[in-house]
Deep mutational scan, measured.
Amino acid sequence: MPSETPQAEVGPTGCPHRSGPHSAKGSLEKGSPEDKEAKEPLWIRPDAPSRCTWQLGRPASESPHHHTAPAKSPKILPDILKKIGDTPMVRINKIGKKFGLKCELLAKCEFFNAGGSVKDRISLRMIEDAERDGTLKPGDTIIEPTSGNTGIGLALAAAVRGYRCIIVMPEKMSSEKVDVLRALGAEIVRTPTNARFDSPESHVGVAWRLKNEIPNSHILDQYRNASNPLAHYDTTADEILQQCDGKLDMLVASVGTGGTITGIARKLKEKCPGCRIIGVDPEGSILAEPEELNQTEQTTYEVEGIGYDFIPTVLDRTVVDKWFKSNDEEAFTFARMLIAQEGLLCGGSAGSTVAVAVKAAQELQEGQRCVVILPDSVRNYMTKFLSDRWMLQKGFLKEEDLTEKKPWWWHLRVQELGLSAPLTVLPTITCGHTIEILREKGFDQAPVVDEAGVILGMVTLGNMLSSLLAGKVQPSDQVGKVIYKQFKQIRLTDTLGRLSHILEMDHFALVV
């Protein structure tokens, strides 16, 4: 994948999101292997301009796509893939009243899908469409860049269908997702969380590099694949309309690839034109409109599966009536509230959605109805927002919020430890010299600072030695090549209790 991002070429006709291997024109390309080798690009942008032909009021008969309808489940399912879809609609009884809503608040519980998330729908649909058009064949390999849930859905379907599955996901995604993927037989590649989507090191860039190296491999490409919004247009939206008897006044959905909100909203605009569509985008993402909503100094966020630093091709923002931004604290607070007060075992993005819903639905009156999409299960986040310690460490809970008995030293300040200034190293000294210094002084790690004293990161003896043994660096290389740029900081005025929580999850903390 090139470091400079080429513009994806656009073909003359058809839909841009065809499933299957992508040609340089962004659509299915038939021909000899030699032709494909000559024409197939190194990668295709996940934010390529959409060429979708959908228009409100256009006859369904003019759609270029294969459409399906929700099917009634048999008493005995032939395999677990038949437990994807037909998820329950559940009334939220307490939270709406707590925040003064007059309307009825309903939750579409997508964590009841077989793999635990709304992404099971698009995973199965992308595979079925690729099999139907002859792209996927027995023994082929599926590769997908994902925040985890699409990966789980694909790995689940691949396990049943017999495909090899490789999932490329950023490091910030939970260990629970990784464990589930491994249990399903998927191979996992992790990428830096802070890598831009168009960087060769991003999950998108690495996935395309693997595709170019592995024979008979395919990126189904949830960011561009029409099967993504079509899955929701054909099934999720129809289920909502049936469950609500066609009567709903507002739908609120958090947005990642945009397939969920695009597919549902398009069908609702056709069948229930008075329904307002509300999009939820986390602070630090750029999906919301108008652009002024996205202006923030924050560039990272903890909530998973929603928000991006690019506009995915499948996201149709014209069908969203209003956007709201959400933050991590309210997302996790509301997710825990949904679990504790409503018994809905949902993930953090569901918290984002409901946090926005109780604001947006203030305009609705008694007798009206708001539906929220709860995308995934708490299963993926047992060591994250479900953990009091994690919430404390991230600053989303305060010590006084917890009532468990603490040891005698818990409320003492870090400054009472009488710490001395640490050994520091410059980023320009060599790895070999740094190892000598650390061994001589008896230290395992040291902060790396520039000549102005600005902290650049941390270097550890173990990481340097393993990097040297693996051949990633040489003793003569500058130590700046092996620094940890993500590390926890703590102030002298913070409590030892807070430091204790940090050290339970990290090997060190830097006192500043």
Rank of each mutant, 00 (worst) to 15 (best):
P2F: 14
V10A: 09
G14A: 06
C15Y: 10
C15H: 10
P16C: 02
P21G: 02
H22Y: 08
K25W: 02
K25T: 08
S27R: 07
S27N: 14
G31C: 15
E34S: 05
D35N: 13
K36T: 08
E37A: 07
A38C: 15
A38Q: 04
K39S: 04
K39D: 11
K39W: 11
E40V: 06
E40W: 11
L42K: 02
W43S: 06
T53I: 13
P59F: 02
P59R: 02
S63N: 14
S63F: 08
S63T: 08
P64I: 14
H65E: 05
H66K: 04
T68M: 04
P70V: 02
S73E: 02
P74F: 08
K75A: 12
I76M: 15
P78I: 05
I80R: 02
G85H: 10
P88G: 06
V90D: 02
R91C: 02
N93M: 02
N93F: 02
K94R: 12
I95C: 09
K97T: 06
F99I: 12
F99S: 14
G100P: 02
L101G: 02
E104L: 02
E104I: 07
A107I: 06
K108V: 05
K108C: 02
F111Q: 02
N113W: 06
A114I: 06
G116R: 11
V118S: 07
D120W: 08
R121I: 04
R121G: 02
R121M: 02
E128F: 08
R132V: 06
T135L: 12
L136D: 02
K137T: 07
P138N: 10
G139C: 10
D140H: 02
D140G: 07
T141C: 12
I143K: 02
E144M: 02
T146S: 02
S147T: 02
N149F: 07
A157P: 15
A157E: 07
A158T: 15
G162W: 04
R164I: 02
I166T: 15
I166A: 02
I167L: 10
S174A: 07
S174W: 05
S174L: 05
S175C: 08
E176A: 04
E176M: 06
V180K: 04
L181W: 02
A183E: 02
G185A: 09
A186V: 07
E187G: 07
R190C: 04
T191W: 04
S199T: 07
P200V: 08
P200C: 02
S202M: 02
H203I: 02
V204D: 02
V204L: 13
V206A: 08
R209Q: 13
R209C: 08
L210N: 05
N212T: 11
N212Q: 12
N216C: 12
S217R: 04
I219W: 02
Q222M: 05
Y223N: 05
R224G: 07
R224C: 08
N225S: 07
N225W: 02
S227W: 05
N228I: 02
L230V: 14
L230P: 02
A231E: 05
H232E: 04
Y233P: 02
D234H: 02
T235G: 11
T235V: 06
A237T: 10
Q242R: 10
Q242M: 14
Q242Y: 08
L248F: 11
M250D: 10
A253G: 02
V255A: 06
V255S: 04
G256N: 02
G258M: 07
T260I: 08
T260H: 12
T260F: 02
T262D: 02
T262W: 05
K267Q: 12
K269L: 04
C272I: 05
